[in-house]
Amino acid sequence: MTSISTQLLASLKDNGADFFASVPCKLLGDMIDLLGADNSIGYVPVAREEEGLGVCAGAYLGGKTPVMVMQNTGLGTIVTSLYSLGIFYNLPITMIVSHRGSPGEPIGTQVPMGRASKPLMDLMGIPTFNFSDGAEVAKVGRLVRHAQVAQRPVVALLDFDFWGKG
């Protein structure tokens, strides 16, 4: 059977995504391997999430359809730039975010930010959708188009259960 990461990348590309930036997470290991091996897309691994948002913004200005792949802990460090770049300039950047702290999380320190992630994005006015079932992978891919319609960053929060690691 095709892995969930393979399905997710295919779905994102089917919906137009052609440029990716990433910061690692244990849940994103397969996804990041796939990104690095895919010559049909632009891909820049970055050192920090905020930097990735900037790289995605530049790729959008260059005519690409960008996706930021990251862990939800980075939602805490990216807030100001999401406001003053992503929202202020109405940039359609799809954010594929692994949801640490969701059920299945083995590390207690991940739970507080896990709980805060969706409320924080809701407060910011960032359309945010939580997925806990890998069978919904096609819906995640459609968020690339939703970002274009919403004309702002959108977030997919992908639980341990989504990755089959609950």
């Binding site: 440029f19 930036a21 632009g42 820049v44 970055v46 905020e50 930097e51 990735g52 948002l53 900037g54 790289v55 995605c56 913004a57 530049g58 790729a59 959008y60 200005l61 260059g62 005519g63 690409k64 960008p66 770049l85």
Partner: peptide, 9 residues
């Protein structure tokens, strides 16, 4: 970072 993303495209 914005310039780097742009230059890549």
């Amino acid at each position: 970072s914005i310039g780097l993303g742009l230059a890549a495209t």
